[in-house]
């Protein structure tokens, strides 16, 4: 059996998906990145290999997410694609005719507008993290609630508390204040969901025409409270696809299928999981830009560099791996 591998290395989670030749998901893995993207990619590959029946041959690899270049270098990806495109591709394949994608991940949130199956417009959050998953994470741990229980607890609320959603810092102080006044936890959680949705729609979704069908994906889509809050705010149903948390990786796998059309893959095999990769870095002192150059080392040998503006370091490698 042949398959395509998609890897999405985000700020909070690292996801791997293996699809069959027809694009159906055979196996998906969701891991927390925990600030260790290289190790998580390796761990993910190990788990993937263990979970697969023996005879699967990977004939294409795609990477996406903010760590896409890193993952691409380690695995020898056939295509390295930005997360907006991969999310759009995955959603339009899973939910044909989708016109709006709401995606909330760990560090960023985005809205993608599709018309006639093609991306017509998109927006990402700017410098603000108030509408993202890491904020929910942080607040859940502050209330001593497992993030997995967040959604179901929020759903028990009858009267959501009004919480300022403009800014994560203000939201937090507002929440503490409401707690001290004696509101119960489900109402506060539901209020938090509503505040995030309000912030998302005013910030990321500003001026966008949100038409049905609406798909809600990304890690935060696991939160039933968020889904319900979106439905209340938009006034129509919001669809959460079955593999909502690995849609980026799924899109990358789909793109890998396109990219390896009549070509052999550059996939370096599952055993890269056991090799010794290290990321190093240094500040180049060649000019006042003081670029922070990142080096990826495999068994002590530099296999990729990036981060320099002038190309002094990235072009110095034999294999031209200059990225961004």
């Amino acid at each position: 059996m042949y398959g395509y591998l998609g890897i999405d290395v985000g700020s909070v989670s690292t996801n791997l998906v293996l699809t069959g030749e027809d694009g159906t998901i055979e196996q998906s893995i969701y891991l927390r990145t925990q600030g260790k993207p290289i190790e998580m990619v390796q761990q993910g590959l190990k788990q993937m290999q263990a979970a697969l029946p023996g005879k699967v041959k990977v004939i294409g690899v795609g990477t996406t997410g903010s760590g896409r270049h890193l993952a691409g270098v380690i695995t020898g990806a056939d295509i390295i694609k930005n997360e907006i495109t991969t999310h759009a591709i995955a959603a339009s394949n899973v939910v044909p005719g989708v016109q709006t994608i709401l995606e909330i991940g760990g560090q960023d949130s985005k809205i993608i507008i599709l018309r006639n199956g093609v991306v017509a417009d998109f927006a990402m959050n700017t410098v603000c993290a108030a509408g993202t998953g890491s904020f929910l994470d942080q607040q859940a741990s502050r209330l001593n609630i497992k993030i997995e229980e967040f959604g179901s607890l929020a759903m028990q609320s009858s009267v959501p508390v009004r919480i300022a959603g403009r800014c994560a810092v203000f939201a937090e102080s507002d929440m503490i204040h409401k707690q001290q006044m004696g509101y119960n936890v489900p109402d506060i959680l539901a209020g938090l969901c509503e505040a995030l949705v309000r912030n998302y729609l005013n910030n990321v979704g500003k001026g966008k025409e949100i038409l049905q069908p609406v798909v809600f994906q990304g890690g935060v889509a696991a939160n039933a409270g968020m889904k319900a809050a979106f439905e209340r705010a938009l006034g129509h149903p919001v669809h959460v696809p079955p593999y909502f948390d690995v849609m980026g990786a799924l899109g990358a796998a789909m793109l890998a299928r396109e990219a390896t059309n009549r070509k052999t893959t550059g996939f370096r095999g599952f055993d890269v999981a056991d090799r010794d990769f290290k990321a190093g870095g240094f500040a180049c002192d060649g000019c006042p830009n003081v670029c922070e150059v990142v080096e990826i080392l495999e068994s002590g040998q530099v296999i990729a560099r990036w981060g320099d503006r002038c190309g002094r370091w990235s072009n110095a490698l034999d294999r031209n791996q200059k990225i961004s």
Partner: peptide, 13 residues
Amino acid sequence: AGMVTRLEAFMDM
């Protein structure tokens, strides 16, 4: 990264 992601996605679109 932010700039690159947006420009790439825009070109794809």
